[in-house]
């Protein structure tokens, strides 16, 4: 994923700070981690927010550990299985955790592959009408995240929002008014925004979309169907 030079729509400070502080719903964290995987600029900004967290920890108050705490910790260390020392040392504060399963590089960035269980071909698409397909990804229910497949030239169902919606382009592009969103670009839509994204001509568009409230589809989707689709 070396498309970083073409990215023009980035994460906000509030999202990066929430991601660093660990207060975002899981679904939003997935979108943020996926964008960072595609965007060196936001990766660097995220590292800065982690540094703020480190500085807060360094200068914070302290609560005395229990009597014998160090010895108990040494006992934990001896009891644990030694961690295999791979060559692929991780590279970022948030990544020095050695978390991702080793998978071949593909179209989907690693954090997304962890949720899909593989690359594009593993996605379990469900048609939702007009050629649009979606695949919900399993996260905690405080917010939801789905992959959307929109045929080139088709419009994303017209909808408004009750909460915050993040839409990250993985392949293809969509237009929203005058703005173009290509691979790696993220659109951040709030309650005020009525938008009508249309997939650009060319490649079919694949997006990762997260919301913390049910979307209200206007034209395409009868409201009745929403509970079944978890939209």
């Amino acid at each position: 994923m070396t498309m970083t030079q073409t990215i023009s729509h980035h994460l906000t400070d509030a999202l990066l700070m929430g991601y660093s502080a660990g207060t975002l719903p899981e679904a939003f964290s997935l979108v943020v981690a996926t964008h960072i995987s595609m965007c060196d600029e936001c990766r660097a900004r995220a590292a800065t927010f982690d540094t703020v967290g480190g500085a807060m920890l360094e200068t914070s108050q302290a609560v005395a550990m229990d009597e014998g705490s160090l010895e108990a910790t040494m006992a934990r260390i001896s009891a644990a299985q030694p961690v295999a020392r791979g060559n692929g040392a991780a590279t970022q504060a948030g990544q020095m955790q050695g978390q991702h399963q080793q998978r071949p590089r593909g179209v989907l960035p690693a954090p997304l592959q962890d949720y899909v269980g593989g690359d594009l071909e593993q996605i379990n698409w469900r048609p939702v009408g007009m050629g649009v397909r979606q695949a919900l990804l399993p996260t905690s229910r405080s917010a939801s995240v789905r992959l959307l497949y929109i045929p080139a030239g088709a419009s994303v169902p017209d909808h408004g929002h009750r909460g915050l919606e993040l839409t990250l382009v993985l392949q293809g592009a969509f237009m929203d008014g005058d703005l173009r969103f290509g691979p790696g670009d993220i659109e951040i839509a709030t309650e005020e925004l009525e938008h009508t994204p249309i997939a650009a001509q060319g490649a079919d568009c694949i997006c990762l979309a997260a919301t913390d409230a049910p979307l209200r589809f206007r034209a395409l989707m009868p409201r009745l169907a929403q509970p079944f689709l978890r939209i």
């Binding site: 540094t51 967290g53 961690v83 020095m96 955790q97």
Partner: peptide, 22 residues
């Protein structure tokens, strides 16, 4: 256990511990 993953060109020790704690 993960001391070998710490990269001092990318983070301070406080930052690294913060991310583990978070």
């Amino acid at each position: 256990h993960k001391a070998h993953l710490f990269d001092p060109t990318r983070a301070s020790v406080a930052t690294w511990i913060f991310t583990i704690a978070r």
